[in-house]
């Protein structure tokens, strides 16, 4: 093969590979764009104040909203956070402090396993552990299920982020005669704050879109309820119910609700960027 032919052949291979990688990128971004565009186009026309301020209308009546579901989702996520964040945070701190040893290794491995367990299975566990003894579906059971889902994510990011803080800061703290726990609380955790916060945020964003574990824990509720020991509505279960319903009006509300859910995650994302924007770096 002459040099020119070889050169042309290489140019051809380069162009082919570049197009293939470009196409893959388009496929990935395209799917995301499709979902967004479809949800927006279907949902945006049915967004109105009624949807976020009113209660669900009785079957057969037009209109109504999902005020109770929005509040319910927030309550469920708060309950999940109240349980999942401290447990995940402490477990992460423990793992970061204890690199070796069979216990830490086992916990680390089990965290991975927990992360891979389908959310519906966690719902079943919450059903057995909380719903059956209480003999009723409740917000508590839903929060418990969401909390379990949050734990592995928070644990792993906390561990990783603490490890990224150079050990020289830990040594500097200890060498000043600062007790270990204070060194962790006031020197290392603040330095790792941004990363840990990212982990917490990602876990919240993940569970706010969960439906399966809520179906047989929080169940859903067509009425206003903020009682923690009663079934409670949530946006995802609302979408699930309304999307399956044989009424056009309900289907449209499901689209609108999906749009609001996506926007909620989006807004959370912006708030999160804003909060973590200004921290000192090492």
């Amino acid at each position: 093969m002459s040099t020119t032919a070889l050169y042309t052949w290489r140019k051809f291979k380069n162009a082919t590979m570049l197009s293939l990688t470009g196409l893959s990128l388009l496929a990935v971004v395209g799917v995301l764009f499709l979902i967004l565009a479809y949800t927006v186009s279907k949902g945006i026309n049915h967004i109105n104040w009624d949807l976020i301020t009113k209660m669900p209308a009785p079957v057969g009546e037009e209109g109504g909203g999902m005020a109770n579901a929005i509040v319910g989702s927030l309550i469920l996520v708060s309950l999940g956070s109240a349980y999942g964040i401290p447990v995940g945070l402490f477990a992460g701190i423990y793992l970061a402090q204890t690199e070796k040893g069979w216990f830490a290794r086992t916990v680390r491995f089990l965290t991975e396993v927990l992360n891979g367990i389908p959310s519906i299975v966690i719902g079943v566990v919450a059903f057995i552990v909380v719903v059956l003894p209480m003999k009723r579906f409740s917000a508590l059971a839903g929060g418990f299920a969401l909390g379990i889902l949050m734990i592995p994510l928070i644990t792993r990011t906390t561990e990783e982020m603490i490890r990224l803080v150079p050990s020289s800061f830990r040594e500097a703290g200890l060498a000043l005669g600062i007790p270990r726990w204070k060194t962790m609380m006031f020197v290392i955790l603040p330095a790792a704050f941004k990363g840990i916060f990212t982990g917490i945020f990602l876990s919240i964003a993940r569970v706010i879109g969960e439906t399966a574990p809520l179906l047989f824990t929080a169940l859903g509720n067509r009425f206003w309820s903020t009682q923690l020991d009663q079934p409670i509505a949530s946006m995802t279960v609302f979408i699930y119910d309304y999307a399956r319903a044989p009424f056009d009006d309900w289907n449209q509300q499901a689209w609108a609700a999906s749009f609001i859910l996506i926007m909620l995650v989006f807004v959370l994302n912006i708030i999160f960027r804003f909060v973590t924007r200004k921290t000192y770096t090492a």
């Binding site: 150079p166 020289s168 800061f169 040594e171 500097a172 703290g173 060498a175 000043l176 005669g177 600062i178 204070k182 060194t183 006031f186 020197v187 603040p190 330095a191 704050f193 921290t279 000192y280 770096t281 090492a282």
Partner: peptide, 23 residues
Amino acid sequence: FQKPNPFPTMTVAQNVVAGLKLN
């Protein structure tokens, strides 16, 4: 220490008194 290691999330002034403040 060998490498300067002021606490990254503290100001100049806070760094100086970190040992006292945290105790």
